[in-house]
Design a protein around this nucleic acid. Structure first.
Length: 722
DNA sequence: AGCACGCCGACT
DNA sequence: GTCGGCGTGCTC
């Protein structure tokens, strides 16, 4: 029987599919792009399913206008994965599906990217090029200069001159340019592996072809990447594709570089949001065609079609960047595990500080744990010390012993890093006469003073204003910045160590593209003596010259409302302190704190993640918190105070009575007001995932029919933060 | 999300 | 007399 109704995913914030008459579509067009009318507009959708009948009035059904058969259809594996995600996360299928495609494919007409040629000068070209150009052909000369510097991609050269592409073709015709065979970098020999690395690789390779989840736990420097490479090697040899997930764009070039250096013959595709549209499309297509052997990408890459998928690697699996916070809320790490299960391939979750979710799964045997206890490189042990801020109060952000340590290290020509998780100059601007503080008028937060920009900024809604000259309440001109931000610390360090080469690494300082790469290279090469930075510096890069790390202030997270704050802080501090030290002499780590006796520091100094995890899991068990239980959260926000809370109380009345599902009282959000809207939330929790989801399905359906316009609400499954 | 329809204030 | 404000409602 021919299919009657085409079910199409469209980028509209509505649940479910849109139904159409098949029009020109055939039964085997599932997974193909289709062109349809919605209202008076044409839109691009994806044909995801066939049905015998529709719930829509048959007279309203319109036909599909067109089917794109120029691309291979999205494989069934991905169609099923997308539908699972929509159902599990209570998210509309359309936006999820369309977001999984490269943006270029959201327009019906798309330009297929020509392969991006790599150009280099021939001997003739090197001799001819600057000379034979007209003196006034400035843009052409710029191109020539760039080519003299070495091989370059056409896409990069195209940004240098208006008619670059035509010009390059012309120069190639004259024999001035050639397309070098991408010289396979000499395949680096696999290093000698230690026993635990070899065992880990053996376990993963032995599991190829079956769903086996692994938790690869190894401290910084224990050689996790070598394990990834070993497992990749075996997967490549079997002709299978590997999906490598990384938390952030900044990390992918680095890991990609190591992979391509090791497997120069393999075809590697990068997928992240920083790519140009065409580039992303080309890489995605290579994956879909089965041409790419390895795909390295950030969270959206979890939906990349890979017809020969054999292995999934999730690096830094604990990283919060895997959890999409806005719009479509999902955990790419969890989706990756789900995908591995349905596809029947092993998945490796790697981290020095795993999420408690994954650690608990390893404890119960759901995941197989692979430990890398030794440091692969010979690194002297860290010398960690606490500085008790109650006994030695900070002067301009740092206590006397910290200043002393910096002075000593600079004197020795050493490199130092100060970790301060607070951007700006000062987090508070205060009136000393009446106690007035500069608050954000739209949020429940203080405005941060940015001295260089001469602005007060809200870090939650982005609002900016000029700092008042006098107190708006009492007129007192004595307004004082209170507390330390990275800018202020940088200024204090510059005053104290005028000869030192100083750099600041935070989102404000590194807004320009690529500058973090540049700075990281400078730090790596020893061109910087002193670095002040936020958590940005904790990630990705290896700084072999660093010998001193100072954690300026970490206490904020120790007694936080957020039950996951301690776990997160531990991961950050372990990562930051792991940056110190090199082979020839031990690194030093100083932690400034008001709570030196806090258990977190004891575990940190012993580099004892399992110990901390055991403690935290026991607490979660005692309080029935995740990962012992499962949670979902109904969040609401409204322009009027208490409207969100009132709506949640009404929503609570609509909740179906499901056994084993606990519904908490609505409470104001951690940030009760943001961007002018009042926010509140309600948590539901259960030990049974199936029961929780049955409950959520019913509740969500009821809430949709009761929708009121004044309140914006969203249901979040497995919410990452409280 | 768009884009319509729809009923009330200042203008060529 | 209209142009247009954005509240409410629909899209297969």
């Amino acid at each position: 029987m021919p299919p009657r109704v085409a079910r199409v995913a469209l980028d509209l914030p509505l649940p479910g599919f849109f139904d159409y008459l098949p029009g020109p579509a055939q039964a085997d067009d599932l997974g193909r792009r289709v062109r349809v009318m919605v209202g008076k507009r044409e839109r691009v959708g994806l044909l995801l399913d066939w049905a015998d009948s529709s719930e829509i009035d048959p007279s309203k059904l319109r036909p599909l206008l067109d089917v794109d058969r120029s691309l291979p259809p999205l494989p069934e594996e991905i169609r099923v994965l997308l539908q699972f995600c929509a159902a599990y996360y209570h998210a509309p299928i359309g936006p999820i599906t369309l977001a999984a495609l490269p943006t270029a494919l959201r327009r019906w007409e798309f330009t297929r990217l020509r392969p991006d040629p790599l150009w280099q000068l021939t001997a003739a070209g090197a001799a001819a090029l600057p000379q034979q150009l007209a003196p006034r052909a400035i843009a052409q000369r710029r191109l020539a200069t760039q080519l003299h510097a070495g091989q370059a991609r056409e896409s990069a050269l195209a940004t240098q001159a208006p008619r670059a592409r035509a010009l390059l073709a012309d120069w190639a015709r004259r024999g001035w340019l050639e397309q070098p065979v991408p010289v396979p970098a000499p395949a680096s020999l696999p290093p000698v592996l230690n026993t635990s690395q070899a065992q880990a690789i053996e376990a993963i390779v032995g599991a190829l072809g079956t769903y086996t989840p692994f938790l690869l736990h190894g401290v910084t420097g224990s050689g996790k990447t070598e394990v990834y490479l070993g497992a990749l090697d075996a997967t490549l040899q079997r002709g299978l594709q590997t999906l490598v997930m990384v938390p952030e764009i900044g990390l992918s070039p680095q890991i990609a570089a190591r992979i391509s250096a090791r497997f120069p013959g393999a075809s590697l595709s990068l997928l992240h949001s920083g790519l140009a549209e065409g580039e992303r499309l080309a890489h995605w297509q290579a994956a879909l065609d089965g041409h790419a052997d390895i795909v390295v990408g950030t969270r959206l890459a979890v939906f990349t079609p890979l017809p020969r998928l054999g292995l999934i690697l999730v690096d830094e699996e604990h990283d919060a960047a895997y959890a999409q916070q806005e719009g479509l809320r999902y955990s790419a790490r969890d989706v990756a595990v789900w995908r591995a299960r349905t596809t029947g391939v092993p998945v490796v979750l790697g981290s020095a500080t795993p999420s408690l979710e994954s650690w608990a799964n390893a404890t119960t045997g759901r995941y197989r744990r692979l430990d890398l206890p030794q440091r692969a490189r010979a690194v002297a042990p860290l010398d960690m010390q606490r500085i008790d801020l109650r006994q030695t109060p900070p002067i301009e952000g740092l206590a006397a012993p910290a200043w002393q340590a910096l002075d000593d290290n600079l004197g020795r020509g050493g490199q130092s890093l100060i970790f301060l998780n607070r951007r700006g100059y000062a987090p508070v601007l205060l009136c000393h006469a009446c106690g007035w503080g500069a608050d954000c008028p739209r949020c429940a937060s203080r405005l941060t003073l940015h001295l260089k920009a001469g602005r007060l900024r809200c870090h939650h809604c982005g609002l900016e204003s000029r700092p008042p000259a006098t107190c708006p309440d009492c007129g007192n001109p004595d307004l004082r910045p209170l507390g330390q931000g990275t800018q202020r610390l940088e200024a204090a360090l510059a005053a104290r160590f005028p000869g030192a080469r100083l750099a600041r690494a935070d989102r404000d300082a590194l807004s320009r593209k690529h500058s973090w790469e540049t700075l990281a290279t400078q730090i790596h090469d020893g061109a910087i003596d002193l670095i002040v930075g936020t958590q940005l510096i904790a990630k990705g890069h290896d700084f072999p010259r660093l010998d001193l790390v100072i954690v300026a202030n970490a206490d904020g997270a120790l007694y936080s409302q957020d039950f996951r704050a301690e776990e997160t802080l531990f991961a950050q501090l372990l990562q930051v302190s792991g940056r110190a030290g090199r082979a020839d002499h031990p690194g030093r780590v100083l932690v400034q704190t008001h709570f030196p006796q806090h258990r977190l520091y004891a575990h940190l100094f012993d580099q004892d993640y399992p110990g901390l995890a055991a403690t935290l899991l026991a607490e979660r068990r005692a309080l029935d918190l995740p990962p012992i239980s499962r949670q979902a959260r109904l969040s609401a926000e409204a322009p009027e105070a208490d409207a969100a809370l009132a709506w949640l109380h009404a929503a609570r009345q609509l909740a179906p009575a499901t056994p084993e599902v606990r519904i908490f009282d609505p409470v104001p959000a951690l940030m009760p007001r943001r961007a002018g809207r009042w926010r509140a939330q309600l948590v539901v929790q259960s030990f049974s995932r199936p029961r929780l989801h049955a409950f959520l399905d019913e509740w969500d359906a009821r809430l949709r029919t009761e929708q009121r316009r004044t309140v914006r609400w969203v249901l979040e499954v497995d919410p990452p933060f409280m």
